[in-house]
Design a protein around this nucleic acid. Structure first.
Lengths: 231, 231, 231, 231
DNA sequence: GATGAATGAGGCTTCATTCAT
DNA sequence: AATGAATGAAGCCTCATTCAT
C-alpha cells in the first residue's frame, strides 16, 4: 500500500506540490482569466488547501507571474531545442515554427496564459511575457538578417534597414500566432501544415505563390512544389 | 480621472450621455481589462452617477458588449470606406491595411478592447468580436482569391485549396495585428509604413524580398523598388 | 374622437389618476410584496410617470397605506352591506361569511394585500389592517353574544365569559380566512359552499356534525340535512 | 443588537456557528420580513462577519429556506411527538393542538417565519411551508375521518365527502392559527386555554355550545361541563 | 507539511426620491 | 397636469488573504 497521488492531506515534497499548484493555476487562469480565476478554485483543483498555496506561492500576483515564467520558459526551450544552428536560415525558421505550433497544440492552456491572459491584465504581467516575445522576435530578425547575408553573397544590394527587419519579424511572429489560434480553435490544420502554410506565405510571398512558386523544406532548388499538406 | 466633458449636474439628452459613458467605458476597459474595470470608475470618468449608467446601459456585461459592437462597427466602417471595389486585389489590400493601421492609431483604446480585452474575457464577448474578425479574414481571403484569378489569366494552374486561402488570410490578418501593436507601442512606424512593410512581406515574400524584389503601390510594373519608408 | 383611457400623457382629473395608481399599486403589492414592489413598476403599470405618483401619493409608505385603507374599507362595506340587522344571529353570520368569501374571490389582490402583505411588513401597516380585522372579530363576537342571548331565553345558564366570546370569534374568523385561501388557491369550492362548510363547522360542531346534525339557512327546525353543496 | 452568544473572534466549529446564524436569521426574518432583513444585520446578530454567513449558508435565499425547513421540522416534530396513536380522535386532536400552541408560544419567531414571512415572499418559500401545512391539514382530516368512523359505529350514515373533510380540516387549522396569533399578541390565554377553546368550538359547535354542551378532555361521557379555563 | 476558521475591502446592482421644465 | 434627467444610500455577494493549530 503505497502513497497514492491525489490522496487528500498526503504529505508530499514541496517541489511536487508546487508543480500541482502551478498546473492547476495555469489551467484556471487560461479558462477564466486572471481576475475571474479564484484562489479557491485553484487550490481545489490542485487538491490542497488555500493556505498551502499562499505558503508556497505567496500571492495571486506571484502565482500568476510564476505561471507566466514557467510557460514562457517551456515555449522558449521547445523552440530553441528544435533549431540546429548549422542549418540555413529558412530551415531554422521552419524548425522553429514547427516547434512553436507543436507547443500551442500540446499546451493550449499555457499558450492561452502567455498569449491572451498575460497580455491583458496589467503591465507587470504584460512586460513579463513581452520580454519573451521580444526574444523570439529578435531571433527571427536574426534569421532574416542571416538570410539576407546568404542572399547578399550572391547579389549584394539588399538595403533592408534594422527597422525593416524588426517589422518583418513582428509580422512573421504575428502571423504565426494568428495561425496557431485558428489551427487550435477551428481544428483545420496540423502543426506541420500550419508551419508549411506560413513558410510559403512568408518566404515566397503571395504574389509569387500565385505564380506557382513554392517554398520547400527540401530547399529552394528541390522539386519545389509543396502544398500545405505535403512536406 | 476627471469628467471628460460637461459640467457636473448639467442635464443632457440621453444620446449625449450615452456617448460619454461609452467613451469612458472603452477607455476604462482598454486600460484595466473587463474584470478590473469598475463601474464606479467608468461612471466617474463619464462624469455621471453610477445609477445613470445602469439606467442607460443596464449592466456591465451589456455595457461591454455595446463597446465591442460600437468599436467593431467603427473599424469595419473605416476599412470598408477605404476600399474601392474597382481596384486590383493588391491595391484593395493596400487600402484596407492602411485604413486598419489608421484605426489602431486613432482609436488605440477601441483597438485594445477589440483585440485584447474582448477576446480574453469569456465566450459571449469573444464571439462578438470573432464575428467581425472572421468577416475581415473572409474578405482578405476573397482578395487572395481574386489575385489568384488575375494571376491565373496569365498562367492557369491555381491549385490553392480553400483551406490554404483561409490559412493565408489568417496569417495576413495576424501579421497586421502584430504590426499594429508594435507600431503603436514602440512608436517606430507610421500607419503607412506599417502597411508598406506588410505589403512587401505578404505580396513579395521574404525570399524574393531579399533578392531585391519590391511591391509598390504604383503597381508591379512600376519603378518597383520601394523600401518601407517610401510610397 | 374622444379621450381614450390609457393614452400616454393624456390629462385626466386627479381622482381618476389616483384610482389608476392605486389599482396598479394593489396589484403590484399583492404580487410582489411591499418591499419587492418597485415604484417604477407601479408607475409603469398605472401608465404614468413616477413623479406623478409622488405628486399624488407622496411616498411608497403612504401609497401602501392608502391601498390598505381602500381595500379594508371595501371589504368592510361589502360585509356590512350584506347583513340585515333584523335577522337572527346565525342568519347574519351566514350573510356576512358569504359576502366575505365573495370579496376574496372578486378582489384577490386586495385580499392578498390585506391578509398577507399588510401584516408582514412592519407595525404601521399591520396596525392599519389589524384595526379592521378587530372590527370584524368584534362584530362576530357580538353575533355570538346575541345567539347566546337568544338561547338564554330558553335556558338561562350560558356562562360564556367575554374572553371566551373573543376567542371563539377569533377562531371563527381564522377559520374563514383559511377557507378563503384554500378556496381561492385550490379552486375546490365556491364562496357559498365555503360559507356553508363553515356554518356547519362553527354552529353545529364536528362532534354533532358527525352524528348527522346540520345547520341550515332555513333555520334549525327546518328539514335539517344540508351538505356543503346544498343551501 | 449584540452578539447573542460567544466572544467575538472566537473560533468555533462549523456546526455551532451555523446554529447561531440560523437563530439570528430566524429572529431577523421574523421581525423584519424577508426583504427588509439584511444579511448585515443577521451576521451582526450572529456575532460573525458576513462572509462567514455566505461561506456556510450560501445566499439569502438558501438561508431563508434553511430557516423555513428547520422551523417546519421543529413544529412537525413537536406536534407528532405529542400525539399518541392509540387515543380516540378527539383526544389526539387535543394533544396536537396543545403541542401546536405550545410551539407558537415557545418559538414565536419561528412561528412568524412559517406563518407570515414564508407565505408572503414568493413561490419557492411559500411552497416549502405549504408542504408542511398540507401535511398537518391532511392529518387533521384523517382525525376527522377517524371520528366519523367511531361515530359511524353507533349510527351508520357517514355522508361527509372527501371535500367536506378537507374543508373542515382547513377551517380547523385556520382557526388554530388565528387563535395562536391572538393568544401571543394579546397575551390573553395560555396554550392550554386556547386548545380548550378550540376543542369546544370545533367539536361541540357554537350552537350546541350555547345550549350548555361542552367538550372535555376526560371524554364525552364525563362530567362534561368545561369552560375554556378548566381541563 | 497542512488545514479549518475567519474577515476587510470592494464590486455589481437596485431603488426611493427629487429637480427642472 | 405631467415628465425626462439624475442621484444618495443601501443591499447582496465574492475574494484575496491571514490566524491558530
Amino acid at each position: 500500500m503505497d502513497a497514492v497521488k491525489g490522496v487528500k492531506g498526503k504529505r508530499l515534497p514541496r517541489a511536487v506540490r508546487e508543480e500541482q499548484m502551478m498546473d492547476a493555476a495555469v489551467r484556471t487562469f487560461a479558462r477564466r482569466g486572471y481576475r475571474a480565476a479564484s484562489m479557491d478554485e485553484i487550490a481545489q483543483l490542485a487538491g490542497v488547501s488555500k493556505p498551502l498555496v499562499y505558503l508556497y506561492l505567496n500571492s495571486k500576483d506571484q502565482l500568476f507571474t510564476a505561471c507566466i515564467r514557467r510557460e514562457a520558459q517551456a515555449l522558449l526551450a521547445t523552440v530553441q531545442a528544435a533549431i540546429e544552428p548549422g542549418l540555413s536560415a529558412d530551415r531554422q525558421l521552419w524548425a522553429g515554427l514547427t516547434a512553436f505550433f507543436d507547443y500551442t497544440v500540446e499546451s493550449p492552456d499555457g499558450w492561452s496564459v502567455l498569449h491572451r491572459q498575460a497580455r491583458t491584465h496589467g503591465e507587470p504581467f504584460a512586460l513579463e511575457v513581452a520580454a519573451m516575445r521580444d526574444e523570439i522576435v529578435a531571433f527571427v530578425a536574426v534569421l532574416i538578417q542571416a538570410a539576407a547575408t546568404e542572399a547578399g553573397a550572391a547579389r549584394p544590394e539588399p538595403e533592408l534597414a534594422e527597422r525593416d527587419m524588426a517589422g518583418l519579424a513582428q509580422a512573421l511572429v504575428g502571423a504565426a500566432e494568428s495561425l496557431a489560434g485558428w489551427m487550435n480553435d477551428a481544428g483545420t490544420m496540423t502543426a506541420k501544415e500550419a508551419a508549411a502554410t506560413l513558410m510559403n506565405f512568408a518566404w515566397v510571398g503571395l504574389g509569387n505563390l500565385l505564380e506557382g512558386e513554392r517554398w520547400s523544406a527540401r530547399g529552394p532548388q528541390g522539386p519545389a512544389v509543396v502544398g500545405a499538406g505535403e512536406f
